[in-house]
Amino acid sequence: MPPNRVRRALRAFVPAILAGATAALVLSGPAFADPAPSPGDLEAQIQQQWDTLEPTIEQYNAVHGQLTANQAKAASLQDQLQPLQLQVDMAMSNIGTIAANVYKGGRSSTVNALLSSGSPTALADQLTLLDMVARAQHEQISSVASMVDKYAADKATLDALIVQQAKQDADLAARKKKIEDQISQLQRLRLQAYGASGGATGALKPVACPFEYTGGPGGTAAQKACSLIGKPYIWAAAGPNGYDCSGLTMVAWAAAGVKLDHLASAQRAESKRISRADLRPGDLIFFGSDTHHVGIYVGGNWMVHAPNTGDHVRMAQLTGYYAANASGYGRPG
């Protein structure tokens, strides 16, 4: 090849070689990941995922509680049915005996009664008495039979509801494995963000709790909640070893002599509605349009709550996420 043509070929070929080498270096070199997410970003992600999990837990609490209550009602109805049915059976047996005797006696029984009565008037009185006894027995049997039918109908309705609720309960329980897997992922994210302490500041109780000391039932409930700080969050638990959100508030108010259901939405219905400006220690703070989370106010813009699995009962300020997502406030008692 003439020298000029060689030089022209090299001039065209070398840039191509260099470009290829550069590309190879880029492809084979270290891959630089995006900057690690900040703790705030991870906390928001954890909260977002938990918001999708907690309603399922609350739903399970509701269905399981209704199922247990209805099973107890059905058992009670069954206990009431047994003696009533026995009364009907015994009365029907007596009627059967009377009917058999009449059948065996036939028409001669009336003649025998007439001959032995001494007079038609006495016979009429005897027949009238027999008729009254028969009617009284019939009314008694009818009354008891009606009660049996009512209890049986009520039990049949309850049994049908129990079958439906048992299916819902089983379906929700079957989702437990999936929930636990998702919660494990949340815990790993939390550990990445905050380490083993599980909290942004590493403090479950950064200020005095209650922040404001008050008397009365609310003050007692707030003090009880504060005394439980550090207990682990346990799904659907109400102590003594751990608590979920509504289990914590239920136990706190129980210390003040006020009974609340183990369900955030039920506690909302059981409480008097108040405004945020009227909050005082012991009041409840509800979160989400479906009321899937609840905390208890302890004064100074602080609350105590059981956040989620992997965390502990802790204090939290009503700022940021909690301020934006509070959907209502209530005062039990």
Rank of each mutant, 00 (worst) to 15 (best):
Q71C: 02
Q140F: 10
L123V: 02
Q126G: 03
M90F: 04
G106T: 05
V88L: 06
L123K: 01
V148F: 05
Q140E: 12
N101L: 12
T128G: 00
S117Q: 04
L130T: 03
A122G: 01
D89G: 11
I98S: 10
K104S: 11
A74W: 01
D131W: 07
A136Q: 15
G106K: 06
V144T: 15
S116I: 00
N112L: 12
S109M: 09
D125F: 01
S108I: 05
A75T: 12
T128H: 03
S109F: 00
G105E: 11
G118F: 03
L77E: 05
A74Q: 10
L77S: 08
G96E: 05
N70G: 02
N112T: 11
N94W: 04
L129H: 07
S109K: 02
A124L: 13
S143R: 13
V133I: 13
V148H: 04
L115H: 01
Q71P: 05
A124K: 02
T68K: 10
M92F: 00
D131V: 01
I98N: 08
M92E: 15
M90I: 10
Y103C: 03
S109C: 00
L77Q: 10
L127Y: 00
Q85W: 03
A75H: 01
A69T: 14
K104E: 14
V133A: 14
A99G: 09
M92Q: 15
K73M: 06
S108P: 00
L114M: 12
A75D: 08
G118N: 07
D89L: 14
G106F: 07
V111Y: 07
S116D: 11
S119I: 09
D149L: 09
S76L: 10
M132G: 02
R135F: 07
M132D: 08
A91V: 01
G106Q: 06
A74N: 04
A145I: 04
P83N: 03
A74H: 04
A74K: 01
N70S: 12
G106S: 08
P83F: 06
S116N: 15
L115M: 13
E139Q: 15
S116M: 06
Q78T: 14
A122Q: 12
A74T: 04
K104Q: 14
P120I: 13
S76Y: 04
S119G: 07
